[in-house]
Amino acid sequence: MNDIAIQLNDVSKAFKYFALKNVDLTLPTGQIMGFVGANGAGKSTTIRIIMGLMQADQGKVNVLGRTLPYEQANLKQEVGYSSEEMRLYGAKNLGWHMQFIKSIYPSWDDNYAKALLNRFDLNTEQKIKQFSKGQHIKAQLLLVLARKPKLLVLDEPTTGLDPVARQEVMNELALILQDEQRTVLFSSHNTADVEKISDQITFIDRGRIIDSNDKETFLENWRRINIELPSDHEMLPMGHVIHVEQQGRIASMVSNQFTPSILQACQQQNIRVNSVDNMTLEEIFLTSVMHRRQGEQK
């Protein structure tokens, strides 16, 4: 058994108005990775390269031990892929689609499919074109989930879902965790979805990976520190602090490598620390992106 489900090394792909640059990505088997980025950051391009649907200009792509894009047909036997732009055939019903997928994948599980129909509240007789957007997305996920693939690659699975449907989908993804051989990569611009369920988190912005780590390390490394300065002079730069906002004597700084030494440094400079707060993934993401973009401009 392979310990690494997805491995990208130095993958680049240039388009006319966009380029994916030197992407490195590792996802161990049995884990869920949340792939976070703004619209147009390069999430879908990266996922297409992972699926072998698009060829990188350079770099190595290995998924479940297969080299992409050359072994894409074999890979796709073991991977469940769904993307935001994907559509089913409007003139046919869900039952027809289920039969079609079942005829392709021997791993299709009828009982699981039935349970999913129930939990997702979907009707097999209803034509796809009569489905709401949320039902359509859930139908696609059902087709992917019921064949129990080793690896799920889901491009924006929760985009366009109402809160109820989103909860249903996230619950199903969570259930996959019971099997330690199954791996999930899902992209999202909704950090709340990613924060709860992911083991690994990767941020992408403007075609570059800006951070990739396990979630606990992520949340542990980032802190917002609220402080009172001894005077209203501009605060001196401090190590491990990537962002400072100051007005008068009140300031707030963000560290992406928090250690107690920052608090000691504050003490030495006569800075009073009012609070050291954890940050949500959304705050971490926004600060990372802003910090990275400012760095590029310099």
């Binding site: 884990q31 869920i32 965790l177 690994q200 606990e216």
Partner: peptide
């Protein structure tokens, strides 16, 4: 750890911690 993660929808790594 995996059971609790699956039933609560919280990642394995967090429950492990």
């Amino acid at each position: 750890i995996r059971e609790l993660a699956a039933s609560t929808g919280v990642s394995v790594i967090t429950v492990k911690r």
